[in-house]
Write a protein that binds this DNA or RNA. Sequence first.
DNA 1: CAGCCGTTTGTGAAAATTCACAAATGACTG
DNA 2: CAGTCATTTGTGAATTTTCACAAACGGCTG
Lengths: 410, 410
Amino acid sequence: MVEQFLRKFQRRFYSLEEFADYISELLDGPVTIEDSNHRLLAYSTHKEHTDSARVSTIIGRRVPEKVINTLWKERIIPALHHQNEAMYIREIKEIGLGNRMAVSIKKSNEILGYIWVLEVNRSFGEREASLLQAAAAKAVTQLQQVHYLKKEQEKNSQELFWRLLTGEVMEEEGIQNDLQNWFSKMPQHFSVVVFETNEEMVEHVHKNIVYITNTSQKIKKLFYTTDRNMLIMLVEPVHNREEKSLRLFIKQCIQLLKERIGVNQVLAGSGELCSHFSEVKDSYEKALDVITINKQLLPDKEKFVFYHELGFYRYAKVLLEQKKRESYTEPVLELLKEYDHKNNTDLCKSLAVYLQHDANMKEASKKLHIHVNTLAYRMKRVEELTNIDIGNAHQKSSLLLEISLTELSD
Amino acid sequence: MVEQFLRKFQRRFYSLEEFADYISELLDGPVTIEDSNHRLLAYSTHKEHTDSARVSTIIGRRVPEKVINTLWKERIIPALHHQNEAMYIREIKEIGLGNRMAVSIKKSNEILGYIWVLEVNRSFGEREASLLQAAAAKAVTQLQQVHYLKKEQEKNSQELFWRLLTGEVMEEEGIQNDLQNWFSKMPQHFSVVVFETNEEMVEHVHKNIVYITNTSQKIKKLFYTTDRNMLIMLVEPVHNREEKSLRLFIKQCIQLLKERIGVNQVLAGSGELCSHFSEVKDSYEKALDVITINKQLLPDKEKFVFYHELGFYRYAKVLLEQKKRESYTEPVLELLKEYDHKNNTDLCKSLAVYLQHDANMKEASKKLHIHVNTLAYRMKRVEELTNIDIGNAHQKSSLLLEISLTELSD
DNA sequence: CAGCCGTTTGTGAAAATTCACAAATGACTG
DNA sequence: CAGTCATTTGTGAATTTTCACAAACGGCTG
């Protein structure tokens, strides 16, 4: 059936809008065409009512993040990626999505975009699915030039970005000009974000991060480039609570990579937010520092996002160097380790968790799955054995530092 | 009168004991002769009863520390130092000291020792004072050879000590032999203690420290030497609670220097306790490290005694280096400082004291002389302004570290 | 000068933490 | 195998800490 409909598309369209309207007429429903990042490319004018998801998409010139997330959760987008046929999608009330049909626009397995048609007048069936599939085939040629232009732009942008990253921006004048050409509105605050994956799957993971970034509405991607297994981006938070939205974006990014493509080994880090392009280099280096620490943390530890969150970890390198150099072992921990080994106890870990939970007996004991009094007893024991005063801020702080350092893999 | 009694001492004494007995007969009371460090040199045999202070001195072969301290507090020892005449001393019940007369044995202003005579049979008056003064004059020649021998010994001991300090002890065999000749009983545990004074008064201060050390019964001085404005000692704690007695000794030493000669600028530090002479070098270096930190601490801060007490301060050097290098300022503290300056508030100091007092509102507020609720309010304010979570162990620890580092003079 | 805002202090109730004590367990020992 | 010792858990009372609220203060501004 598809073959016969292909003929219907053997004509020329002078714009994507015209193409959208044509499909709309054929299928008798509102049509939306998006690029691979769910940015609006074209939409049909159609008299009939339209669902709220489509309205927001058109107003915002992109599919709302919530809608994209739901489509992923419902396995609709993955399904569109995997198949060439058009898909019928039942309404999803909570995101204002009515019944519709969708198809992905693919060229040799690469996603170029999507076509959506709402079901308003006629019930969609086999016939409409085939029609849409034919439309998608035609769309490939329509989109390719857009796609090509973007790739060209990207190349230029990456060159510019590297100049910022390496601090090769001495001729402030020139770069300012370049940048003014680049942005319609100069970004106010921005930060370098780096993602690092392990060697395999680099390309796949990077593609997905870029996709997530492009569809994220918490931040705006200004530049991006890659360096071996690292993806480096300059991003601008959209909201006023800048740090927060940036943190949210990074956390979500890692979360989505896990959910959507099952990749766990992605580390991320952000440099400090800055407002001058001369600071980009510094932000980049700080982002790398964050990643370095995250890499050394135990797997179950909450990872850092910003450099200023590192606290004493920002000294980790020189501290570990000194520790290695002087071969002095903190006597308290040494003694406890010995005692633990000899008596089959767990004082060391208990102390660590206790300190990591801010000397909060309740929380620490919960974490350790022991009774509060048990922990209290152990801490009293620790005090007796090591002769430390557990209510002394300096000692506590020093021990926590020492414990944190020994926990770092090196 | 003194001159006429001098003739009575124009004879030869074949031992200090004989000399003591001779004085005892002349004055009709028990006699004790001590060296400059209140170590027993000789005592008369005398039938009459003797006070408990004298008994303990003879049993322990030295004047008990408590007695010495009281004699200092009562300004008796300083008086003996300053005058050449014999002094009458009223009984001091709490240390078991009966009425007695004393004189210092001096050679050109250097104290060589003391002679004590108890008043038991006859009441002492002018005549006895003059007799005792004459005895002291004679004693000079008696003690000089003891004194000379000791100086000789010291020279050899200092050479040996420097070999230990510089780790030039590769030929373990040889040094072991030397040491075995040196000590009747090989010391079990020992530590290097270093005192540092500012440039003026070095000699005076060092003399006093050595005196205090020699009279201290908490520790035994094994070796000592000096290096510019530093006094370096190897000491052995006498009691089983070794660390404690060593700490006590050092604290007391500094205390006594303040009380007795009004010197405030003395810094001290101990290395770690060790039990092999090959560890002496390391102990020495650690003692120097402790002093370095103590020197950098704010004047009102409690000073450290042992290296293992330094906690994170042991990393101070590399941390300060990195801070200087990277010119990154902790944003939380930066923000607070700014706010304080603009609004004439005291959030920075409040946070510092709060953290230094282990997040204990009551203690911190007491220290700051403000109401508990005021501090609570300020801390809430800090949280709002800087967006930190004050109940987070890592943040607290990091901030305390950062604050402590900024407080170090560099 | 009234009024606002940020700050400080006081009060007392509510919530939490700490502490003492008892009992049970289990490993190790003479 | 009884007994000791270190450890764990439970209970409830004592103590401390936290929190909300009111009131007052002082600098600043319209």
